[in-house]
Structures are given as structure tokens and as C-alpha cells.
């Protein structure tokens, strides 16, 4: 199957000489949920900026649906229309006075007719649940709302791939859950999503595939299901495995839970545990979890 987007052997150095990427490979399956893990400075943001053509690899290529992306005006225009990039800090990417105006920035730059722009803006604001704030001044919004405006601004361009840099940072738990639901709804519509994070628990809970970066390299790309049974694979790339793995392993050792499947989060593990005391339905619940 042809990946939706693929970065092959990409290297990039910043103007000050520091390495951003070193021979980095990454491929995303169409319609998949992807988490990009890595410490600060591992190159996550640099990688993401390559996917959108904001940075051009010195060596290596970027392929969109199998076709090599040409980094000229037309090529970048087409790429950026398909790949929506949401940055971490909302205050650094919102620059209009009103919500609606900011969301319309991308579609207007695409040169769409006004009615189409209005439609898209309204739809994007509905998608993020801000339809009642269309005329609100951006600086009166809360941090979480600003993050959603940023997302709407990218959704209004109707990208096929959505790349989000640390979307959960600074959000409290209920807001994180809202965002997670929103991302799931987008995936259900066929959008491919890549999310960077430094929270392995979130990655294991949400993603289909996990990609781990360190020192500018993509060190690991694996389906979550495979990673959940291999703590050593996480440690080999300098990551702490999700807490649920050690907990599950211990409960298996004590004979409380079945060895497979490994639940993806503490919450799900708890659900399995709770189901356990109902002897009649125990088996089926464990398999559903």
C-alpha cells in the first residue's frame, strides 16, 4: 500500500549548524492515527515542518501519495493545501482580531470564492465547537478555545493529513478528552492524523502507530498493538513505556489478567479488572477490551 506521505532519508541542518534531522524515515498509512514521541529537541517539530514543506530536506525526498514533492511555488502550494499543520502555541499562530477572520485566512489564500470561504469557516468552527464564537475577539478566548481556533483555521483548508505539534500541552484533562474525541471524528471522516507528544500514556491510548524520534532520527515506527507487549522496544529508544504495561504485566504474573490483549490505558485495564469479578461474562469482556 502506498503511504499517504513519506519522508525518505531526510537530513536537515539549521542555519546555525545544528542538526535538525539525520537520515530520517517516516511513512504514514492513509486514515491512520499516528503519535510522534520524543524528548524536547529530538527533532519532532523539525520533522513536522518538513511534512508541510516549511523546511526542505538537504538530502532525501518527501513523497505525497507516492509522488515526489517538488519544492517550488506550485508544489508547495499543493502540498500545504493537503497537509494542515497546527503549531503548539496558539498565541504564535493567531494574528487576527476575530475568530472568523483568522479561520478564513487559509481558505482566502487558496483563492476560493467568498461564499465557499464562508461555508468552510462555518463548518470548521462547528467542527471544533466554536460556532457561537465566530465574531468573538480572539484575545478574549481561553487557552483551550484558542487552540481550537488554530485547529479550525487548518480544517477550513480541508487537509487530508493533519499534523499537530503537542496539541495536548497546557490543556486540562476534560479539554484533552474533548480534543481526542474531535481527532477521532476527523479520522472517522478519513483524515490521517499525526500528533507529537511527550506523553507515552496518551500515545499508547490513542494512536494506531507510534513513531519515536531521538537525535533527529526516526528510531522506531510500529503499530501500538505490537509495542504494548515489548517494554524493551520502548527502552531501546530512550522512552519510558506506558505505565499500563508494567501494571498489566504484574497483574498477569499474579494470575489476575490474561497475557493478551494488553489494555491500551489504565482506564481500560481498570474496566477489564472490574469485569473480572463477574465470572459469567469475564471471558467475553476481556476480549472486547
Amino acid at each position: 500500500m502506498i503511504p499517504l506521505i513519506e519522508l525518505r532519508g531526510a537530513s536537515y541542518r539549521y542555519p546555525d549548524g545544528s542538526h535538525g534531522l539525520r537520515d530520517c524515515h517516516l511513512a504514514l498509512r492513509p486514515g491512520s492515527r499516528n503519535a510522534l514521541l520524543g524528548a524536547n529537541g529530538a527533532g519532532k517539530t523539525t520533522l513536522m515542518q518538513h511534512l508541510n514543506g516549511l523546511l526542505q530536506p538537504e538530502t532525501g525526498v518527501l513523497r505525497w501519495k507516492g509522488e515526489t514533492v517538488v519544492h517550488n511555488r506550485a508544489g508547495l502550494r499543493a502540498l500545504r493545501q493537503q497537509v494542515g499543520l497546527v503549531f503548539q502555541n496558539p498565541d504564535r499562530q493567531l494574528f487576527s482580531a476575530h475568530v472568523e477572520e483568522d479561520v478564513s485566512f487559509g481558505p482566502l489564500n487558496l483563492g476560493l470564492p467568498e461564499t465557499e470561504v464562508r461555508n468552510r469557516v462555518a463548518q470548521a468552527l462547528r467542527a471544533v465547537g466554536l460556532q457561537d464564537h465566530a465574531r468573538a475577539p480572539v484575545h478574549h478566548l481561553s487557552f483551550g478555545q484558542k487552540k481550537r481556533v488554530c485547529l479550525a483555521g487548518v480544517l477550513a483548508m480541508r487537509p487530508q493529513l493533519l499534523v499537530l505539534d503537542e496539541p495536548m500541552a497546557g490543556l486540562d484533562l476534560p479539554m484533552q478528552q474533548d480534543l481526542q474525541r474531535l481527532l477521532d471524528a476527523l479520522v472517522a471522516e478519513g483524515v490521517t492524523v499525526l500528533v507529537s507528544t511527550h506523553d507515552p500514556d496518551f500515545a499508547a491510548d490513542w494512536a494506531d502507530e507510534i513513531h519515536v524520534m531521538a537525535q533527529g532520527r526516526c528510531q522506531l515506527s510500529q503499530p501500538v498493538a505490537a509495542l504494548l507487549t515489548q517494554p524493551s522496544a520502548w527502552q531501546a529508544v530512550g522512552q519510558t513505556p506506558p505505565q499500563v504495561m508494567a501494571l498489566h504485566a504484574e497483574l498477569v504474573r499474579q494470575g489476575l489478567l490474561a497475557a493478551v490483549p494488553v489494555p491500551r490505558s489504565i482506564e481500560r485495564l481498570l474496566a477489564v479488572l472490574r469485569a473480572r469479578t463477574l465470572p459469567a461474562s469475564q471471558e467475553s469482556v476481556i476480549h472486547d477490551a
Binding site: 515542518q49 516549511l54 500545504r80 483555521g153 483548508m157
Partner: peptide, 21 residues
């Protein structure tokens, strides 16, 4: 830094495709 982050975010949304933009 804020300026360069801002222009990067704008470029990601095609903010500099033409002179008017």
C-alpha cells in the same frame, strides 16, 4: 522568535503565496 514563529505559521497556511497575500 515570535515573528519567525508567526511567519512560519502563516506560510503553513499559504500566507506568502503572492505579493498581495
Amino acid at each position: 522568535e515570535a515573528w519567525s514563529d508567526g511567519t512560519t505559521a502563516q506560510r503553513a497556511r499559504l500566507g506568502y503565496v503572492g505579493r498581495r497575500q
